[in-house]
Design a protein around this nucleic acid. Structure first.
Length: 112
DNA sequence: AACATGACTTTCT
DNA sequence: TAGAAAGCCATGT
């Protein structure tokens, strides 16, 4: 076989992204860039968004714990921000006036 | 192969 | 507060 093939790399990257998202504890949120960096893919925040966009509706992955830079709720296709906001509020995630997540209080601090 | 698009981020005007 | 610009890059046409 050809270890290190491009296809394999992309598949592995997406798997690491999913694993990272899955490791975000309830009540905490991480930004796209943060998830990418934790997954060993610095600078590829977009790839994270891509992976999440392809998740099946019944996915167990806590996609709602991923927000944009500065705690902004991302504009998702076909659905308003209210869905994600509700799910986060249900986990006691703190919000700041303006509708952003309070990263200082509820941001994810991954353990080394 | 060129071009467009997108659940992104950061910096500079 | 807004917009442009430049990074990033997988996918689809």
């Amino acid at each position: 076989m050809r270890p290190g093939g491009a296809d394999t790399d992309r598949a592995a990257a997406r798997q690491r992204i999913r694993a990272t998202v899955d490791s975000i504890p309830p009540g905490r949120v991480a930004t796209y860039g943060q998830v990418a960096a934790e997954a060993g893919l610095p600078g590829r925040a977009r790839l994270v968004g891509r992976v999440l966009s392809e998740l099946p509706a019944n996915s167990e992955l806590p996609w709602h714990r991923v927000v944009g830079a500065g705690g902004a709720i991302a504009q998702r296709p076909g659905d308003g921000p209210s869905v994600q906001r509700r799910r986060l509020r249900a986990e006691r995630v703190r919000f700041r006036p303006g509708g952003r997540v309070d990263l200082a209080a509820s941001g994810w601090e991954p353990e080394a």
